[in-house]
């Protein structure tokens, strides 16, 4: 800006920068600290942010490679972090795809069709969605316990149960996609239907290709929510090699055996891809999140 600024404005700008920098450093400190700890030697090393005694031990263990210390002793990886990450990704991809399919078709009906009970169903879905899954865990456990006796891949301690259980959480996604569909003019589809296309064809060949961006957003949102899901996974999964990351990670900081360094490496390793994905897609994700509800 070419204008000459009064002194008070410059002082205020300086103050604002200082305040923001101070706050940012408070916010970023824990994250930097964890990165630093992951490179420190030993599990309780303290010191400056830039490690004085650099070691890749924790990273090797996080990748599942046994680590030989300087004194010759070999440390085995405490937990299968990569397996947990793979479990999480597997569950998240499958359940997000299914959620996407369910919510897209219903959003289409809610946006474009007139039928009985539309308004109460939409509102009712929102209300039921507010009920946290933690509270009905006893019932869900009983359901999958009994179901597992008849259909083994849907029982307790299977990823199938976890994936299927996530299908209840579609209301927010339906609202998001419905809003997007309503912002697209319906005349194209009407023209297609006048020319003899069926409702399904109009949806499949005309509306869907136009809505790829919002479908991406909903997929990413569902993916992140599934990765972070804790209560259901903590009750439905039992074996160590079945756990998802959200449930497994806490074992590093168990009551009597805190592996702070190993945790740090595992946290950075598994948290980085998710954080990066979030930041890359933030423009779309934030629109979806702030329009609908709260990050879960």
């Amino acid at each position: 800006m070419a204008m000459v600024q009064p002194r008070s404005i410059r002082a205020r700008k300086l103050g604002a920068h200082l305040a923001l920098l101070g706050f940012v450093s408070l916010v970023v400190f824990p994250l930097l600290l964890v990165i630093s700890i992951s490179f420190r030697e030993g599990n309780f090393a303290t010191g400056s942010l830039i490690p004085e005694r650099f070691s890749l031990e924790h990273w090797a263990l996080a990748f599942g490679i046994p680590w030989e210390r300087a004194d010759g002793s070999v440390v085995q990886p405490p937990f299968p972090v990569l397996l947990w990450l793979w479990n999480s990704v597997k569950v998240a991809v499958v359940s997000s795809l299914m959620i996407l399919a369910l919510s897209t078709t219903s959003a289409y009906a809610f946006a474009r069709m007139r039928f009985q009970g539309k308004a109460p169903i939409l509102k009712g879905m929102l209300i039921f969605q507010m009920f946290p899954a933690v509270l009905s865990l006893v019932a869900l456990y009983a359901l999958f316990d009994r179901l597992g006796q008849l259909v083994p891949w849907l029982g307790i301690n299977t990823h199938g149960a976890l994936i299927v259980a996530s299908l209840g959480a579609v209301a927010l996604h339906i609202w998001t996609i419905k809003g997007y569909f309503e912002s697209i003019d319906g005349s194209l589809e009407e023209a297609a239907m006048v020319d003899g296309a069926s409702t399904w064809q109009a949806f499949r060949h005309i509306l869907l290709p136009l809505s790829v961006p919002i479908l991406m957003v909903v997929f990413i949102l569902a993916f992140i929510m599934s990765i972070m899901e804790y209560p259901m996974a903590s009750v439905l999964l039992l074996d160590e090699d079945k756990l998802t990351l959200a449930v497994g990670a806490q074992q590093y900081l168990a009551e009597h055996n805190q592996r702070w360094g190993d945790f740090a490496a595992a946290a950075v390793l598994s948290g980085l891809p998710i954080t990066a994905a979030f930041l890359l897609c933030q423009r779309w994700i934030i629109g979806g999140l702030t329009a609908g509800g709260v990050k879960g």
Partner: peptide, 12 residues
């Protein structure tokens, strides 16, 4: 803080 998965930052 919003981008980092909550189960990781809580444990941190």
């Amino acid at each position: 803080p919003y981008a980092v998965p909550a189960f990781i930052s809580i444990l941190i």
